[in-house]
């Protein structure tokens, strides 16, 4: 028996919105520890990794580890039937054919339940080493979203350069070119969540497809902060912490010299 209850059901809506344009089908693994998902996009250029700890749920029970093969677009359709303030409960048997979703309005006046058919999905799991990255940038997620959106109008590839002073995002295209630099905040600058913080061992410059970075920014509603982890010649990690429950991280392979 698997049962997981989230008072803030809208969180689940936001998570599926943040994944479904990149990944169509995925296995969500449920264990005593919580929910995890690892899935690549169809072209194997990027990977999305979701982690929701059991302690972040209001109620969590998982007697036996199970894998839920989900069509994320279809799950998104069902979650659209939930109100934004609804409490959402997920339920499945030990050898499930379906996932039951129950939505309860805050005053308990409306209770609905839906069953989503599960699928057998063959996935390739990648072993991702626990790496110490040379640069970690923490910045407001809305700022990152704006930069990616703005630069995507000009070109396809973004050069991200991280130095102690700041992070430079550069693009060039047929119409011209552009750069946006965000500088490290000084300690006196306002709110923690509005700050840009850079931890750097050595400067890093990498090239990335803006199209994918754009997919990742669908996670912006999940939190005020995004973290970018970079080292030379390896995929970037774009990590969105989800307050009190876990995180969603995207890995994107760089564009490299031919």
């Amino acid at each position: 028996m698997f049962e997981a209850r989230l008072t803030e059901g809208s969180l689940l809506k936001k998570i599926i919105e943040a994944i479904k344009d990149l990944v169509q089908e995925a296995n969500v693994d449920c264990s005593e520890e919580g929910l995890t998902m690892q899935a690549m996009d169809a072209s194997h250029v990027s990977l999305c990794s979701l982690n929701m700890r059991h302690g972040g749920f209001d109620h969590y029970r998982c007697d036996r580890s199970i894998s839920l093969g989900l069509n994320l677009a279809n799950l998104g359709k069902i979650l659209k039937c939930a109100g934004n303030d609804d409490v959402v409960t997920l339920k499945a048997e030990d050898e499930p054919d379906t996932l039951t979703l129950m939505f309860e309005s805050p005053n308990q006046e409306r209770i609905s339940d839906f069953e989503l058919k599960l699928m057998d999905i063959e996935t390739e799991h990648l072993g991702i080493p626990n790496e110490e990255y040379k640069c970690t940038i923490s910045m407001p997620s809305g700022e990152f979203q704006r930069i990616v959106r703005d630069l995507a109008v000009i070109g396809e590839t973004c050069i991200i350069t991280c130095t102690k002073e700041g992070v430079k995002f550069s693009v060039s295209g047929d119409l011209g070119n552009g750069n946006v630099t965000v500088r490290q905040s000084s300690a006196a600058d306002g709110d923690e969540k509005d700050q840009v913080k850079i931890q750097m061992e050595e400067p890093v410059t990498l090239n990335f497809a803006l199209r994918y970075l754009g997919f990742f920014t669908k996670a912006t509603p999940l939190g005020s902060t995004v973290k970018l982890h970079m080292s030379p010649d390896v995929p970037i990690v774009v990590e969105y912490p989800i307050d009190g429950i876990g995180s969603i991280s995207y890995f994107l392979a760089p564009k490299i010299d031919e």
């Binding site: 194997h44 250029v45 990648l126 995929p235 564009k255 031919e258």
Partner: peptide
Amino acid sequence: GRKQASLFSFFQKK
């Protein structure tokens, strides 16, 4: 020119 690398160039299949 630059080409898009695949994740398989960096991570092993489990």
